[in-house]
Design a protein around this nucleic acid. Structure first.
Length: 416
RNA sequence: GCCGGGGUGGGGUAGUGGCUAUCCUGGGGGACUGUGGAUCCCCUGACCCGGGUUCGAUUCCCGGUCCCGGCCCCA
């Protein structure tokens, strides 16, 4: 006996049905914005995958060597692959380039609520526009998607430029910047305080950082922050950029939060996270601007902004819903090869009309067949009997009401 | 990587240091030859793995593993 690998899942037919329904709705929203679907390989070279992801993510990589002794890894997210694809083949397409994907990703982690070793991300990347309206489009799109599936959520939007502006004035090393961003993202403010003391940072820096973190709320706080950070020109610029972005965001119910630092190191400007209402696995979406990733991968500097949904977490955060499915079972009234053949022909006709039809494949007797139809939720049973067939008729039984009537073959389709 | 709680047929469960391991459900066949979505009968199928304690372990102890959840990190 074999078991599925830890952290992976088998999906039952009903789950798949629901996943497909949600997937379809999200896709539809993406496509109404004219984003185009792409797909990249499940595995990439280890070098690519570890290029701009921190130590932590690298430890979470599923790695293997192929027969040519090349180091490979299963993708832990898709943005790196999209950038690679862009540089390989798409960089000369007209801008903006609007791409989306739906793909399984892999991280070697301990499973938990909404966290798996194989999970699905659905995301969008908008490449080539540096303008605030592009950031806004990404935010609007991500919210439109969740609205289309009636999910309750909370969106937090921040801007890394503000923090960077503060760092800039104190000329911090990249190492220290990163460390501070980590602590901020973790909301480990005690640790942050300690660290700032350890590196003997000036009082002014501490003050600026903690001031920043205290600001969380509606967009009015940006104005207050402008006042406080008036000596930090780059921070001011970032705040203005964020305001311009928010001018184009069509929703009001957003939270401005400068505590969002994002774990992936490649973000440069606006960043956002969306949380669902369910306990555990709350973050369902993350995104932001990553203007120097493409350059880092060897391309010429190109602005880009994007986001990814954690599809499995979205599934955990929507209310369960019923799926009603009309299906038909055709069964001969008695075991007879000719009746079976007739059943197949009738099934064929109905399927051409788009109906979901099964024919009894178990050689069941009528009562057992009805029993079967009942247990698997067949909505209508067509009984093919010899005597009726001679008059060009079959019996149609409605499994919900129990009603049964004799209908002419040529009228059958209009009844089911 | 760390921490907590779990693991009995396919699904849901009962129970026990010793007897053929309980019940429901599901699956297959039959009684029943055009309708009993019923009923009855038969069959199918389980104590996570390894070690220890013991005359004897599914039960107690230890380790592992997997599941559920938490931390870290993230989606």
């Amino acid at each position: 006996m074999f078991n599925k690998p830890k952290g992976t899942r088998d999906f039952l037919p009903m789950e798949m049905k629901k996943r497909r329904i949600i997937e379809k709705k999200l896709r539809k929203v993406f496509e109404t914005y004219n984003f185009k679907e792409i797909l990249t390989p499940t595995f990439e070279s280890f070098q690519l995958l570890s290029k701009k992801t921190g130590e932590d993510i690298r430890k979470q990589l599923f790695v293997f060597k192929d027969h040519g002794n090349r180091e490979m890894g299963l993708r832990p997210e898709v943005t790196s692959s999209v950038v690679r694809f862009y540089l390989n083949e798409l960089k000369n397409l007209p801008k903006p380039l609007k791409l989306y994907y739906f793909a399984n990703c892999f991280r070697y982690e301990n499973p938990q609520a909404g966290r798996y070793r194989e999970f699905w991300q659905m995301g969008c990347e908008l490449i080539g526009s540096e303008y605030p309206i592009a950031d806004a489009e990404i935010i609007n799109l991500s919210m439109d998607g969740l609205n289309a599936i009636d999910m309750d959520y909370e969106i937090n939007i921040g801007h890394l430029g503000v923090l960077k502006g503060i760092f800039k004035r104190f000329d911090l090393s990249e190492d220290r910047e990163l460390k501070i961003r980590r602590l901020i993202d973790k909301e480990d403010y005690g640790g942050l305080e300690d660290y700032l003391c350890d590196i003997e940072s000036p009082e002014e820096l501490k003050e600026a950082i903690f001031n920043l973190l205290n600001f969380k709320g509606d967009r009015d706080i940006i104005n207050e922050l402008k006042e406080i950070l008036k000596d930090y020109p780059l921070s001011l610029q970032a705040l203005e950029n964020l305001e311009e972005i928010l001018d184009f965001v069509k929703y009001e119910n957003i939270i401005v939060n400068f505590g969002i630092a994002r774990g992936l190191d490649y973000y440069t400007g606006m960043v956002f996270e969306i949380y669902g209402k369910k306990e555990g696995a709350r973050q369902v979406c993350g995104g932001g601007r990553y203007d120097n990733l493409i350059e880092l991968f060897g391309g010429k500097p190109t602005p880009a902004v994007g986001f990814a949904y954690g599809f499995d977490r979205i599934m955990l955060n929507i209310d369960d819903f019923e799926i009603k499915e009309e299906s038909i079972l055709i069964v001969p009234a008695k075991k007879d090869k000719n009746l079976l053949k007739r059943s197949l022909r009738i099934a064929d006709e109905l399927r051409k009309g788009g109906k979901v039809v099964e024919v009894d494949l178990m050689n069941r007797k009528l009562n057992k067949a009805l029993n079967y139809a009942n247990t698997i939720g067949i909505s209508k049973v067509i009984i093919i009997g010899e005597r009726e067939l001679e008059e060009g008729r079959v019996s149609l039984k409605d499994m919900k009401t129990g009603e049964q009537k004799s209908v002419k073959l040529e009228e059958l389709e209009s009844f089911v």
